[in-house]
Design a protein around this nucleic acid. Structure first.
Lengths: 254, 254
DNA sequence: GCGGGTTTACTGGTCTGACCAGTAAACGGA
DNA sequence: TCCGTTTACTGGTCAGACCAGTAAACCCGC
Protein backbone atom coordinates (compact mmCIF):
# COMPACT_ATOMS: atom_id res chain seq x y z
CA UNK A 1 0.00 0.00 0.00
CA UNK A 2 1.50 3.29 -1.06
CA UNK A 3 0.83 5.24 2.12
CA UNK A 4 3.07 8.24 2.64
CA UNK A 5 4.22 9.08 6.15
CA UNK A 6 2.24 12.02 7.49
CA UNK A 7 4.30 15.08 8.09
CA UNK A 8 2.76 17.75 10.20
CA UNK A 9 4.08 21.08 9.04
CA UNK A 10 3.97 23.88 11.52
CA UNK A 11 2.56 27.30 10.75
CA UNK A 12 5.89 28.97 10.15
CA UNK A 13 7.08 26.10 7.96
CA UNK A 14 4.01 26.44 5.83
CA UNK A 15 4.80 30.09 5.31
CA UNK A 16 8.38 29.27 4.34
CA UNK A 17 7.14 26.65 1.90
CA UNK A 18 4.63 28.98 0.32
CA UNK A 19 7.15 31.74 -0.19
CA UNK A 20 9.79 29.38 -1.50
CA UNK A 21 7.46 27.86 -4.03
CA UNK A 22 6.31 31.30 -5.09
CA UNK A 23 9.94 31.95 -5.94
CA UNK A 24 10.44 28.57 -7.57
CA UNK A 25 7.55 29.04 -9.96
CA UNK A 26 8.43 32.60 -10.79
CA UNK A 27 5.74 34.55 -8.93
CA UNK A 28 8.52 36.17 -6.95
CA UNK A 29 12.00 36.90 -8.22
CA UNK A 30 15.20 38.45 -6.91
CA UNK A 31 14.72 42.10 -6.09
CA UNK A 32 10.99 41.80 -5.48
CA UNK A 33 9.57 42.95 -2.19
CA UNK A 34 7.60 40.99 0.34
CA UNK A 35 4.88 42.81 2.29
CA UNK A 36 5.89 43.98 5.75
CA UNK A 37 5.52 41.67 8.70
CA UNK A 38 2.20 43.19 9.76
CA UNK A 39 0.74 42.70 6.31
CA UNK A 40 2.08 39.15 6.13
CA UNK A 41 0.53 38.30 9.45
CA UNK A 42 -2.82 39.34 8.08
CA UNK A 43 -2.28 37.52 4.75
CA UNK A 44 -1.36 34.25 6.43
CA UNK A 45 -3.61 34.94 9.43
CA UNK A 46 -0.97 34.10 12.00
CA UNK A 47 0.68 36.13 14.70
CA UNK A 48 3.69 38.26 14.08
CA UNK A 49 5.93 35.93 16.03
CA UNK A 50 5.11 33.19 13.53
CA UNK A 51 5.73 35.42 10.55
CA UNK A 52 9.06 36.43 12.02
CA UNK A 53 10.17 32.86 12.55
CA UNK A 54 9.38 32.14 8.94
CA UNK A 55 11.31 35.19 7.81
CA UNK A 56 14.22 34.18 9.99
CA UNK A 57 14.61 30.83 8.32
CA UNK A 58 14.20 32.38 4.87
CA UNK A 59 16.89 34.83 5.83
CA UNK A 60 19.16 32.11 7.20
CA UNK A 61 18.88 30.19 3.96
CA UNK A 62 19.68 33.28 1.93
CA UNK A 63 16.25 33.63 0.36
CA UNK A 64 15.27 37.05 1.67
CA UNK A 65 16.92 39.96 3.42
CA UNK A 66 15.25 42.43 5.72
CA UNK A 67 16.43 45.69 7.15
CA UNK A 68 14.85 47.44 10.10
CA UNK A 69 12.92 50.55 9.25
CA UNK A 70 12.63 49.91 5.55
CA UNK A 71 9.00 50.61 4.64
CA UNK A 72 9.32 48.64 1.44
CA UNK A 73 9.57 45.36 3.30
CA UNK A 74 11.93 42.36 3.01
CA UNK A 75 13.53 41.82 -0.37
CA UNK A 76 14.07 38.57 -2.27
CA UNK A 77 17.85 38.12 -2.33
CA UNK A 78 20.07 37.69 -5.32
CA UNK A 79 22.11 34.52 -5.16
CA UNK A 80 25.12 34.51 -2.91
CA UNK A 81 27.46 31.60 -2.26
CA UNK A 82 27.29 32.27 1.48
CA UNK A 83 25.11 29.28 2.24
CA UNK A 84 27.14 26.99 0.01
CA UNK A 85 30.29 28.16 1.73
CA UNK A 86 28.83 27.50 5.11
CA UNK A 87 27.50 24.06 4.29
CA UNK A 88 30.64 22.96 2.53
CA UNK A 89 32.96 24.02 5.30
CA UNK A 90 30.61 22.30 7.70
CA UNK A 91 31.19 19.16 5.67
CA UNK A 92 34.92 19.63 5.27
CA UNK A 93 35.37 20.19 8.98
CA UNK A 94 33.73 16.92 9.90
CA UNK A 95 36.07 14.70 11.85
CA UNK A 96 35.23 11.88 9.50
CA UNK A 97 36.48 13.90 6.52
CA UNK A 98 40.24 13.66 6.25
CA UNK A 99 42.78 16.15 5.00
CA UNK A 100 43.36 13.92 2.01
CA UNK A 101 39.77 14.05 0.94
CA UNK A 102 39.82 17.82 1.03
CA UNK A 103 43.07 17.97 -0.93
CA UNK A 104 41.82 15.46 -3.49
CA UNK A 105 38.77 17.60 -4.02
CA UNK A 106 40.89 20.69 -4.31
CA UNK A 107 43.20 19.11 -6.89
CA UNK A 108 40.19 18.00 -8.83
CA UNK A 109 38.57 21.42 -8.89
CA UNK A 110 41.69 23.47 -9.50
CA UNK A 111 42.84 21.09 -12.20
CA UNK A 112 39.63 21.38 -14.18
CA UNK A 113 39.29 25.08 -13.54
CA UNK A 114 42.76 25.59 -14.96
CA UNK A 115 42.09 23.34 -17.93
CA UNK A 116 38.93 25.27 -18.74
CA UNK A 117 40.58 28.60 -18.14
CA UNK A 118 43.25 27.83 -20.70
CA UNK A 119 40.55 26.97 -23.20
CA UNK A 120 38.03 29.69 -22.53
CA UNK A 121 39.87 32.69 -21.13
CA UNK A 122 39.18 36.05 -22.66
CA UNK A 123 41.88 38.70 -22.96
CA UNK A 124 40.37 40.44 -19.94
CA UNK A 125 40.60 37.22 -17.95
CA UNK A 126 44.23 36.85 -18.90
CA UNK A 127 44.94 40.43 -17.90
CA UNK A 128 43.39 39.90 -14.49
CA UNK A 129 45.28 36.67 -13.92
CA UNK A 130 48.53 38.33 -14.92
CA UNK A 131 47.85 41.27 -12.64
CA UNK A 132 47.23 38.94 -9.72
CA UNK A 133 50.46 37.12 -10.42
CA UNK A 134 52.36 40.42 -10.46
CA UNK A 135 50.82 41.34 -7.11
CA UNK A 136 51.86 37.99 -5.72
CA UNK A 137 55.41 38.42 -6.94
CA UNK A 138 55.61 41.95 -5.60
CA UNK A 139 54.32 40.81 -2.24
CA UNK A 140 56.98 38.11 -2.02
CA UNK A 141 59.65 40.61 -3.01
CA UNK A 142 58.53 43.01 -0.31
CA UNK A 143 57.32 40.86 2.56
CA UNK A 144 58.46 37.33 1.84
CA UNK A 145 55.92 34.70 2.84
CA UNK A 146 53.90 37.04 5.03
CA UNK A 147 50.97 37.72 2.72
CA UNK A 148 51.54 34.75 0.44
CA UNK A 149 48.34 32.95 1.32
CA UNK A 150 46.10 35.94 0.59
CA UNK A 151 47.72 36.72 -2.74
CA UNK A 152 47.93 33.19 -3.99
CA UNK A 153 44.25 32.78 -3.14
CA UNK A 154 43.39 35.78 -5.26
CA UNK A 155 45.56 34.48 -8.07
CA UNK A 156 43.82 31.14 -8.07
CA UNK A 157 40.42 32.77 -7.78
CA UNK A 158 41.13 34.72 -10.96
CA UNK A 159 41.93 31.50 -12.77
CA UNK A 160 38.75 29.85 -11.56
CA UNK A 161 36.81 32.85 -12.70
CA UNK A 162 38.26 32.49 -16.17
CA UNK A 163 37.09 28.88 -16.34
CA UNK A 164 33.59 29.98 -17.25
CA UNK A 165 32.01 27.34 -15.05
CA UNK A 166 30.35 28.90 -12.04
CA UNK A 167 29.85 25.61 -10.25
CA UNK A 168 33.55 24.81 -10.42
CA UNK A 169 34.43 28.41 -9.66
CA UNK A 170 32.33 28.75 -6.54
CA UNK A 171 33.09 25.31 -5.16
CA UNK A 172 36.73 26.02 -5.82
CA UNK A 173 36.49 29.29 -3.94
CA UNK A 174 34.96 27.54 -0.99
CA UNK A 175 37.52 24.76 -0.87
CA UNK A 176 40.24 27.32 -1.46
CA UNK A 177 39.11 29.18 1.63
CA UNK A 178 39.17 26.00 3.66
CA UNK A 179 42.59 24.90 2.52
CA UNK A 180 43.94 28.40 3.10
CA UNK A 181 43.92 27.53 6.79
CA UNK A 182 45.97 24.44 6.10
CA UNK A 183 48.31 26.56 4.05
CA UNK A 184 48.96 29.07 6.79
CA UNK A 185 49.77 26.27 9.19
CA UNK A 186 51.99 24.64 6.60
CA UNK A 187 54.01 27.80 6.09
CA UNK A 188 54.21 28.43 9.79
CA UNK A 189 55.82 25.11 10.54
CA UNK A 190 58.34 25.26 7.74
CA UNK A 191 61.67 26.95 8.24
CA UNK A 192 62.23 27.32 4.54
CA UNK A 193 59.16 29.39 3.83
CA UNK A 194 60.79 31.68 1.36
CA UNK A 195 62.07 28.91 -0.92
CA UNK A 196 58.64 27.29 -1.03
CA UNK A 197 56.91 30.52 -1.75
CA UNK A 198 59.34 31.53 -4.48
CA UNK A 199 59.00 28.16 -6.09
CA UNK A 200 55.24 28.63 -6.07
CA UNK A 201 55.59 31.98 -7.76
CA UNK A 202 57.75 30.43 -10.45
CA UNK A 203 55.08 27.81 -11.05
CA UNK A 204 52.62 30.67 -11.25
CA UNK A 205 54.61 32.20 -14.08
CA UNK A 206 54.70 28.92 -16.00
CA UNK A 207 50.99 28.57 -15.36
CA UNK A 208 50.17 31.96 -16.80
CA UNK A 209 52.31 31.19 -19.81
CA UNK A 210 50.42 27.99 -20.47
CA UNK A 211 47.05 29.64 -20.02
CA UNK A 212 48.15 32.41 -22.32
CA UNK A 213 49.18 29.84 -24.94
CA UNK A 214 45.84 28.06 -24.46
CA UNK A 215 47.73 24.92 -23.50
CA UNK A 216 45.04 23.33 -21.35
CA UNK A 217 46.82 20.13 -20.41
CA UNK A 218 50.09 21.88 -19.69
CA UNK A 219 48.41 24.48 -17.51
CA UNK A 220 46.44 21.91 -15.55
CA UNK A 221 49.56 19.83 -15.02
CA UNK A 222 51.54 22.75 -13.63
CA UNK A 223 48.71 23.81 -11.37
CA UNK A 224 48.03 20.37 -9.94
CA UNK A 225 51.71 19.58 -9.51
CA UNK A 226 52.24 22.88 -7.72
CA UNK A 227 49.43 22.39 -5.25
CA UNK A 228 50.45 18.80 -4.69
CA UNK A 229 54.06 19.66 -3.99
CA UNK A 230 53.01 22.37 -1.58
CA UNK A 231 51.44 19.91 0.81
CA UNK A 232 53.31 16.72 -0.07
CA UNK A 233 56.06 17.05 2.52
CA UNK A 234 53.48 17.36 5.23
CA UNK A 235 51.73 14.12 4.39
CA UNK A 236 52.58 10.56 5.25
CA UNK A 237 53.17 8.01 2.45
CA UNK A 238 49.65 6.63 2.52
CA UNK A 239 48.21 10.11 2.09
CA UNK A 240 50.62 10.91 -0.71
CA UNK A 241 49.57 7.72 -2.40
CA UNK A 242 45.93 8.72 -2.29
CA UNK A 243 46.77 12.02 -3.92
CA UNK A 244 48.91 10.68 -6.76
CA UNK A 245 46.05 9.68 -9.07
CA UNK A 246 44.92 13.28 -9.18
CA UNK A 247 48.37 14.46 -10.06
CA UNK A 248 49.19 11.74 -12.55
CA UNK A 249 45.92 12.24 -14.35
CA UNK A 250 47.46 15.45 -15.65
CA UNK A 251 50.94 14.34 -16.73
CA UNK A 252 53.44 17.15 -16.81
CA UNK A 253 54.24 18.10 -20.35
CA UNK A 254 57.80 19.34 -20.58
CA UNK B 1 43.78 53.25 7.75
CA UNK B 2 42.68 49.74 8.67
CA UNK B 3 39.22 50.59 9.95
CA UNK B 4 36.78 47.74 9.90
CA UNK B 5 33.15 48.41 9.06
CA UNK B 6 31.05 48.28 12.19
CA UNK B 7 28.53 45.52 12.21
CA UNK B 8 25.77 45.74 14.70
CA UNK B 9 24.72 42.24 15.59
CA UNK B 10 21.22 41.79 16.85
CA UNK B 11 20.35 39.87 19.99
CA UNK B 12 19.30 36.70 18.21
CA UNK B 13 22.37 36.77 15.99
CA UNK B 14 24.58 37.01 19.01
CA UNK B 15 22.94 33.91 20.42
CA UNK B 16 23.46 32.06 17.16
CA UNK B 17 27.09 33.10 17.10
CA UNK B 18 27.70 32.03 20.67
CA UNK B 19 26.17 28.62 20.17
CA UNK B 20 27.96 28.08 16.87
CA UNK B 21 31.32 28.92 18.34
CA UNK B 22 30.63 26.70 21.33
CA UNK B 23 30.27 23.91 18.79
CA UNK B 24 33.29 24.98 16.78
CA UNK B 25 35.61 24.90 19.77
CA UNK B 26 34.24 21.66 21.08
CA UNK B 27 32.21 22.77 24.10
CA UNK B 28 29.17 21.33 22.39
CA UNK B 29 29.16 18.33 20.09
CA UNK B 30 26.63 16.36 18.09
CA UNK B 31 24.13 14.65 20.35
CA UNK B 32 24.51 17.12 23.19
CA UNK B 33 21.47 18.89 24.53
CA UNK B 34 20.81 22.58 24.74
CA UNK B 35 18.79 23.86 27.69
CA UNK B 36 15.11 24.45 27.00
CA UNK B 37 13.94 27.76 25.64
CA UNK B 38 12.97 29.08 29.05
CA UNK B 39 16.35 28.30 30.48
CA UNK B 40 18.10 29.82 27.48
CA UNK B 41 16.10 32.99 27.83
CA UNK B 42 17.39 33.32 31.37
CA UNK B 43 20.97 32.43 30.38
CA UNK B 44 21.12 35.00 27.61
CA UNK B 45 18.72 37.37 29.41
CA UNK B 46 16.50 37.92 26.42
CA UNK B 47 12.87 37.16 25.76
CA UNK B 48 11.66 33.84 24.55
CA UNK B 49 10.80 35.27 21.15
CA UNK B 50 14.45 36.16 20.67
CA UNK B 51 15.64 32.76 21.80
CA UNK B 52 13.22 31.15 19.40
CA UNK B 53 14.41 33.20 16.46
CA UNK B 54 17.96 32.13 17.23
CA UNK B 55 16.90 28.50 17.45
CA UNK B 56 15.05 28.83 14.16
CA UNK B 57 18.12 29.91 12.27
CA UNK B 58 20.22 27.24 13.95
CA UNK B 59 17.60 24.75 12.92
CA UNK B 60 17.44 26.08 9.37
CA UNK B 61 21.20 25.74 9.03
CA UNK B 62 21.12 22.19 10.31
CA UNK B 63 22.92 22.90 13.57
CA UNK B 64 20.23 21.87 16.04
CA UNK B 65 16.93 20.04 16.02
CA UNK B 66 14.07 20.55 18.41
CA UNK B 67 10.92 18.59 19.01
CA UNK B 68 7.89 19.87 20.85
CA UNK B 69 7.35 18.38 24.26
CA UNK B 70 10.81 16.93 24.69
CA UNK B 71 11.93 17.91 28.19
CA UNK B 72 15.55 17.26 27.31
CA UNK B 73 15.69 20.30 25.05
CA UNK B 74 17.00 20.85 21.52
CA UNK B 75 19.77 18.54 20.37
CA UNK B 76 22.92 19.36 18.42
CA UNK B 77 22.48 17.65 15.06
CA UNK B 78 24.74 15.19 13.40
CA UNK B 79 25.90 16.33 9.99
CA UNK B 80 23.48 15.98 7.16
CA UNK B 81 24.01 17.06 3.56
CA UNK B 82 20.58 18.72 3.53
CA UNK B 83 21.94 22.24 3.61
CA UNK B 84 24.60 21.48 1.02
CA UNK B 85 21.95 20.01 -1.21
CA UNK B 86 19.78 23.04 -0.84
CA UNK B 87 22.53 25.54 -1.47
CA UNK B 88 23.92 23.69 -4.42
CA UNK B 89 20.61 23.27 -6.16
CA UNK B 90 20.00 26.94 -5.49
CA UNK B 91 23.21 27.59 -7.38
CA UNK B 92 22.55 25.12 -10.17
CA UNK B 93 19.09 26.52 -10.77
CA UNK B 94 20.34 30.04 -11.32
CA UNK B 95 19.43 31.31 -14.74
CA UNK B 96 23.02 32.34 -15.23
CA UNK B 97 24.19 28.76 -14.75
CA UNK B 98 23.81 26.83 -17.97
CA UNK B 99 23.04 23.18 -18.56
CA UNK B 100 26.56 22.72 -19.82
CA UNK B 101 28.10 23.94 -16.59
CA UNK B 102 26.04 21.47 -14.63
CA UNK B 103 26.94 18.63 -16.95
CA UNK B 104 30.63 19.54 -16.91
CA UNK B 105 30.54 19.44 -13.15
CA UNK B 106 28.76 16.13 -13.21
CA UNK B 107 31.26 14.56 -15.58
CA UNK B 108 34.06 15.82 -13.41
CA UNK B 109 32.62 14.39 -10.21
CA UNK B 110 31.44 11.08 -11.61
CA UNK B 111 34.70 10.59 -13.45
CA UNK B 112 36.81 11.01 -10.34
CA UNK B 113 34.42 9.09 -8.16
CA UNK B 114 34.65 6.18 -10.55
CA UNK B 115 38.41 6.39 -10.79
CA UNK B 116 38.70 6.35 -7.01
CA UNK B 117 36.12 3.62 -6.66
CA UNK B 118 38.13 1.35 -8.92
CA UNK B 119 41.20 1.95 -6.80
CA UNK B 120 39.69 1.85 -3.33
CA UNK B 121 36.60 -0.32 -3.45
CA UNK B 122 36.24 -3.02 -0.85
CA UNK B 123 34.57 -6.32 -1.59
CA UNK B 124 31.46 -5.06 0.16
CA UNK B 125 31.45 -1.96 -2.06
CA UNK B 126 31.72 -4.14 -5.14
CA UNK B 127 28.87 -6.33 -3.93
CA UNK B 128 26.63 -3.34 -3.41
CA UNK B 129 27.49 -1.88 -6.81
CA UNK B 130 26.82 -5.20 -8.47
CA UNK B 131 23.52 -5.55 -6.66
CA UNK B 132 22.44 -2.12 -7.83
CA UNK B 133 23.33 -2.99 -11.38
CA UNK B 134 21.26 -6.19 -11.17
CA UNK B 135 18.30 -4.18 -9.86
CA UNK B 136 18.71 -1.74 -12.74
CA UNK B 137 18.79 -4.55 -15.28
CA UNK B 138 15.79 -6.25 -13.73
CA UNK B 139 13.84 -3.01 -13.77
CA UNK B 140 14.55 -2.52 -17.45
CA UNK B 141 13.55 -6.10 -18.19
CA UNK B 142 10.28 -5.64 -16.36
CA UNK B 143 9.27 -2.02 -16.93
CA UNK B 144 11.49 -0.66 -19.67
CA UNK B 145 12.54 2.94 -19.11
CA UNK B 146 9.90 3.62 -16.52
CA UNK B 147 12.02 3.47 -13.37
CA UNK B 148 15.36 3.89 -15.12
CA UNK B 149 16.21 7.21 -13.57
CA UNK B 150 15.69 6.03 -9.99
CA UNK B 151 17.70 2.86 -10.43
CA UNK B 152 20.56 4.39 -12.32
CA UNK B 153 20.79 7.05 -9.62
CA UNK B 154 21.15 4.39 -6.97
CA UNK B 155 23.72 2.58 -9.07
CA UNK B 156 25.82 5.70 -9.43
CA UNK B 157 25.41 6.54 -5.77
CA UNK B 158 26.87 3.18 -4.85
CA UNK B 159 29.91 3.90 -6.99
CA UNK B 160 30.39 7.30 -5.42
CA UNK B 161 30.14 5.72 -2.02
CA UNK B 162 32.93 3.32 -2.92
CA UNK B 163 35.18 6.23 -3.87
CA UNK B 164 36.05 6.84 -0.26
CA UNK B 165 35.92 10.60 -0.68
CA UNK B 166 32.94 12.07 1.09
CA UNK B 167 33.27 15.48 -0.53
CA UNK B 168 33.10 13.97 -3.99
CA UNK B 169 30.42 11.54 -2.90
CA UNK B 170 28.07 14.11 -1.41
CA UNK B 171 28.57 16.73 -4.09
CA UNK B 172 28.03 13.98 -6.65
CA UNK B 173 24.82 12.96 -4.95
CA UNK B 174 23.58 16.53 -5.05
CA UNK B 175 24.45 17.08 -8.69
CA UNK B 176 23.04 13.65 -9.49
CA UNK B 177 19.75 14.70 -7.99
CA UNK B 178 19.71 17.85 -10.04
CA UNK B 179 20.56 16.17 -13.32
CA UNK B 180 17.99 13.48 -12.65
CA UNK B 181 15.38 16.05 -13.64
CA UNK B 182 17.18 16.65 -16.91
CA UNK B 183 17.29 12.92 -17.40
CA UNK B 184 13.58 12.42 -16.99
CA UNK B 185 12.90 15.13 -19.51
CA UNK B 186 15.46 13.63 -21.86
CA UNK B 187 13.82 10.23 -21.76
CA UNK B 188 10.40 11.71 -22.12
CA UNK B 189 11.21 13.46 -25.35
CA UNK B 190 12.95 10.55 -26.98
CA UNK B 191 11.04 7.98 -28.89
CA UNK B 192 13.77 5.42 -28.62
CA UNK B 193 13.86 5.28 -24.85
CA UNK B 194 14.39 1.58 -24.61
CA UNK B 195 17.48 1.51 -26.80
CA UNK B 196 19.11 4.30 -24.82
CA UNK B 197 18.32 2.68 -21.54
CA UNK B 198 19.59 -0.71 -22.63
CA UNK B 199 22.77 0.79 -23.92
CA UNK B 200 23.23 2.44 -20.57
CA UNK B 201 22.81 -0.84 -18.78
CA UNK B 202 25.43 -2.41 -21.03
CA UNK B 203 27.82 0.38 -20.14
CA UNK B 204 26.99 -0.32 -16.52
CA UNK B 205 28.12 -3.90 -16.93
CA UNK B 206 31.41 -2.82 -18.50
CA UNK B 207 31.79 -0.32 -15.72
CA UNK B 208 31.38 -2.90 -12.99
CA UNK B 209 33.84 -5.15 -14.76
CA UNK B 210 36.45 -2.40 -14.81
CA UNK B 211 35.87 -1.49 -11.18
CA UNK B 212 36.09 -5.13 -10.27
CA UNK B 213 39.42 -5.39 -12.12
CA UNK B 214 40.61 -2.21 -10.41
CA UNK B 215 41.08 -0.62 -13.81
CA UNK B 216 40.68 3.01 -12.75
CA UNK B 217 41.21 4.69 -16.11
CA UNK B 218 39.05 2.21 -17.95
CA UNK B 219 36.23 2.57 -15.48
CA UNK B 220 36.34 6.35 -15.52
CA UNK B 221 36.37 6.37 -19.30
CA UNK B 222 33.30 4.17 -19.57
CA UNK B 223 31.45 6.18 -16.97
CA UNK B 224 32.18 9.56 -18.49
CA UNK B 225 31.51 8.39 -22.01
CA UNK B 226 28.20 6.92 -20.93
CA UNK B 227 26.96 10.04 -19.23
CA UNK B 228 28.17 12.17 -22.09
CA UNK B 229 26.43 10.10 -24.72
CA UNK B 230 23.23 10.16 -22.76
CA UNK B 231 22.85 13.90 -23.13
CA UNK B 232 24.88 14.54 -26.27
CA UNK B 233 22.02 14.29 -28.75
CA UNK B 234 20.12 16.91 -26.83
CA UNK B 235 22.87 19.49 -27.01
CA UNK B 236 23.86 21.88 -29.75
CA UNK B 237 27.39 21.73 -31.21
CA UNK B 238 28.78 24.52 -29.02
CA UNK B 239 27.56 22.74 -25.91
CA UNK B 240 28.99 19.43 -27.07
CA UNK B 241 32.26 21.17 -27.68
CA UNK B 242 32.37 22.48 -24.12
CA UNK B 243 31.81 18.98 -22.80
CA UNK B 244 34.45 17.21 -24.89
CA UNK B 245 37.45 18.11 -22.73
CA UNK B 246 35.87 16.28 -19.83
CA UNK B 247 35.30 13.21 -21.92
CA UNK B 248 38.62 13.22 -23.73
CA UNK B 249 40.52 13.64 -20.49
CA UNK B 250 39.63 10.02 -19.83
CA UNK B 251 40.42 8.35 -23.14
CA UNK B 252 38.54 5.14 -23.68
CA UNK B 253 40.80 2.16 -23.26
CA UNK B 254 39.63 -0.68 -25.42
C1' DG C 1 9.59 76.39 -8.70
C1' DC C 2 12.91 74.15 -6.24
C1' DG C 3 16.52 72.27 -2.94
C1' DG C 4 17.13 70.96 2.04
C1' DG C 5 15.82 70.29 6.54
C1' DT C 6 11.83 68.44 9.35
C1' DT C 7 8.04 65.78 10.30
C1' DT C 8 5.49 61.53 10.15
C1' DA C 9 3.96 57.14 9.49
C1' DC C 10 5.72 53.31 9.15
C1' DT C 11 9.40 49.40 9.62
C1' DG C 12 11.77 45.56 11.96
C1' DG C 13 13.70 44.17 16.74
C1' DT C 14 12.52 43.09 21.27
C1' DC C 15 9.79 42.30 25.42
C1' DT C 16 5.90 40.45 28.46
C1' DG C 17 2.71 37.23 29.56
C1' DA C 18 -0.48 33.93 28.25
C1' DC C 19 -2.65 29.37 26.36
C1' DC C 20 -2.42 24.89 24.07
C1' DA C 21 -1.16 20.21 22.52
C1' DG C 22 2.08 17.08 23.21
C1' DT C 23 5.92 14.41 25.55
C1' DA C 24 8.76 11.76 28.89
C1' DA C 25 9.73 10.75 33.19
C1' DA C 26 8.09 10.13 37.76
C1' DC C 27 4.51 8.00 40.17
C1' DG C 28 1.47 4.58 41.86
C1' DG C 29 -1.35 0.56 41.90
C1' DA C 30 -1.71 -4.38 40.73
C1' DT D 1 8.32 -5.98 38.88
C1' DC D 2 5.51 -4.26 35.45
C1' DC D 3 2.25 -1.19 33.23
C1' DG D 4 -1.02 2.47 33.12
C1' DT D 5 -1.68 7.20 34.94
C1' DT D 6 -0.42 11.48 36.37
C1' DT D 7 2.32 15.60 36.19
C1' DA D 8 5.48 18.94 35.20
C1' DC D 9 7.44 20.65 31.56
C1' DT D 10 8.32 21.25 26.48
C1' DG D 11 7.96 23.73 22.10
C1' DG D 12 4.33 26.23 19.02
C1' DT D 13 1.39 30.00 18.81
C1' DC D 14 -1.01 34.10 20.04
C1' DA D 15 -2.05 39.09 21.55
C1' DG D 16 -0.51 43.47 22.55
C1' DA D 17 3.03 46.66 23.60
C1' DC D 18 7.37 49.75 23.20
C1' DC D 19 11.58 51.33 20.90
C1' DA D 20 15.11 52.85 17.55
C1' DG D 21 15.54 53.62 13.09
C1' DT D 22 14.22 54.59 8.13
C1' DA D 23 12.35 56.78 3.91
C1' DA D 24 9.14 59.30 1.91
C1' DA D 25 6.09 63.04 2.27
C1' DC D 26 5.96 67.59 3.73
C1' DC D 27 7.00 72.32 4.18
C1' DC D 28 9.66 76.32 4.41
C1' DG D 29 12.87 79.67 2.82
C1' DC D 30 14.81 81.12 -1.20
Amino acid sequence: MPFTPVQKVSAYESIVLQIESAIANGDLKAGDRLPGERKLMADFSVSRATVREALRVLQATGVVESRPGDPRGPVISHYSPRLLEKSMSQLARLDSVSRVEVLQFRLLLEGSATRLAARNRSEADLDLITARLRELEASIQADGAKFFSEHVSRFHAAIRRASGNQLIEICGNVIGGITAELMVRRLHTDADQLAIVQRSALDGARLVEAISARDAEGAAAVQVENIYRFYADDLDPAEVDALRPFVDASPVVE
